[in-house]
Computed example of a mutant assay.
Amino acid sequence: MTLSKNKASLLGIGDNVVDFYKDRSEFFPGGNALNVAVLAKRFGLEKAGYIGLVGNDVEGEHVIKSLKAEGIWIDRMRQACGENGKAVVHLDEKGDRVFLGSNKGGIQRQLTLRMEEVDLEAVEEHGCVHTSVFSYLENELPKIRERANAVSFDFSSHLGMDYVKSVAPYITMAFFSGSKLDDQGIDDLIATVAGLGVETVGVTRGSDGAFWQVAGKRYRQGIKPVEVTDTLGAGDSFIAAYISGILMGHSVEESLDEAASFAADTCTRFGAFGHPYKVEEA
Rank of each mutant, 00 (worst) to 15 (best):
L53M: 12
D57F: 03
D57Y: 02
V58N: 08
V63G: 10
V63N: 09
I64L: 12
K65P: 00
S66Y: 03
I72E: 09
I74K: 03
R76F: 03
C81N: 14
C81I: 14
E83H: 11
V88L: 14
L91M: 07
D92L: 12
K94C: 01
V98Q: 15
V98D: 11
V98I: 15
L100K: 14
L100P: 02
N103Y: 13
G105R: 07
Q108H: 15
L111E: 10
M115V: 02
L120K: 04
E121S: 05
A122L: 02
A122R: 03
G127D: 04
V133D: 00
L137V: 11
L137E: 07
E138K: 13
L141K: 06
P142F: 10
I144L: 08
R145E: 06
R147N: 14
A148W: 07
V151I: 10
S152L: 08
S152K: 08
S152E: 07
D154V: 05
F155N: 11
H158I: 05
H158A: 13
L159S: 05
M161S: 06
D162C: 01
V164F: 02
P169E: 05
Y170E: 02
I171K: 06
F176R: 13
S177L: 09
K180S: 14
K180E: 13
D182H: 04
D182R: 04
D183A: 14
Q184C: 08
G185A: 10
G185D: 08
D188G: 00
L189R: 11
A191I: 01
A194Y: 13
A194P: 01
G195N: 06
V198T: 04
